[in-house]
């Protein structure tokens, strides 16, 4: 397995290199001048040009790319045009809220979606199955921000149970940390629950028709044991795959959720950086997201060995 991991990790290098070049070029080709944004509404062209030169944006694109590549190879993602901080420091400041939000979201999603999917498959065609399918359509269809506003209105403004916005570090106490994360995580997990529950239902349905399930039932095993130990265990590979693939969905959702709930994470940093045409920060964050995505896929592939002993690398 170690050679497989090494090969996969080595394969991330060309992936990240291609992402880096594409992002660099796309940012230079899209409209928007960071210097004009920094200068403010009242600046004239001369003032903007001076700021542009100060940022090094008056150089040719190949020269800018060479400088950036040199920095990257030395582990430096550069300095944010907008925040005047090292991009690595900015990412360091913002990574905890995003990781916390993603982790709680995944935990909620898996804890809710997998049992729901299994139960729906077990009661195929029944009211639970139909309700789950209906919920899935709703979960896919309702935009994240609409759901967020509805939850805020009901839970925070009408009932006063949870805060409207903000984030507390786990170091400041577990309860405040959790109180600030519950609503954003529920908001973000809905689409994820819909996705995982549907895939779980389909995968478990497939396995429920297998001979070994009939054998297990014939042996007199309880339905719960049949479902968990035999049906679900054999359906784990597609479920693990969809959880992994859903990370991409999560990255997109984090951007919106963090904006609505004012969580100072990587999602909001991305929005701020894109709006301000903060090239070094956008490049840094996208590289991080790409690396995370590649890594998650690797972990999912490795998890197959755990779920299905027949798989060997």
């Amino acid at each position: 397995m170690l050679p497989f991991i090494a090969r996969r990790l080595a394969a991330t290098i060309p992936v990240l290199a291609i992402v880096a070049v594409l992002v660099f070029l796309l940012l230079r080709l899209t409209p928007g001048d960071p210097a004009a944004i920094l200068a403010g509404d009242a600046a004239n062209v001369e003032q903007i040009a001076k700021i542009r030169a100060g940022l090094g944006l008056d150089r040719s694109i190949p020269v800018q790319f060479a400088i950036w590549l040199g920095q990257m190879l030395s582990g430096d993602l550069g300095e944010s045009f907008y925040f005047k901080m090292k991009v690595t420091d900015l990412i360091g400041q913002r990574i905890e809220p995003t990781l916390a939000l993603a982790a709680v979201t995944i935990v909620i999603a898996v804890l809710v979606a997998v049992p729901l999917g299994v139960l729906a498959a077990w009661r195929f065609g029944g009211w639970l199955d139909r309700a789950l399918m209906g919920f899935s359509v709703l979960g896919f269809s309702v935009p994240v921000f609409v759901l967020a506003y509805i939850l805020i209105w009901v839970v925070s403004l009408k009932l006063g149970w949870l805060p409207v916005q903000g984030y507390r570090r786990i170091a400041d106490g577990f309860l405040p940390f959790l109180r600030h994360l519950i609503l954003p995580s529920i908001t973000l997990s809905v689409i994820y629950i819909a996705l995982i529950a549907r895939v779980t239902r389909a995968a478990v349905l497939d396995t429920l028709g297998e001979d070994y399930i009939r054998t297990a039932r014939a042996k007199g095993l309880s339905e719960s044991r049949v479902l968990v130990r035999h049906a679900l265990a054999n359906a784990a590979v597609p479920i693990a795959t969809v959880i992994g693939l859903g990370i991409a969905l999560l990255i997109g959702g984090v951007v919106v959720t963090e904006s609505v709930y004012a969580i100072p994470g990587l999602g909001r940093l991305t929005v701020d950086a894109v709006l301000a045409r903060d090239f070094p920060t956008i490049q840094g964050v996208i590289l991080l997201f790409s690396f995370t995505y590649v890594l998650v896929n690797l972990l999912v592939d490795l998890s197959y060995v755990f779920f299905d002993p027949r798989i060997r690398y």
Binding site: Y149, I152, W153, Q165, S259, V260, A262
Partner: peptide
Amino acid sequence: LRDAQTQVNA
């Protein structure tokens, strides 16, 4: 707070 609705809610 970037979002206008979040500002008012807060």
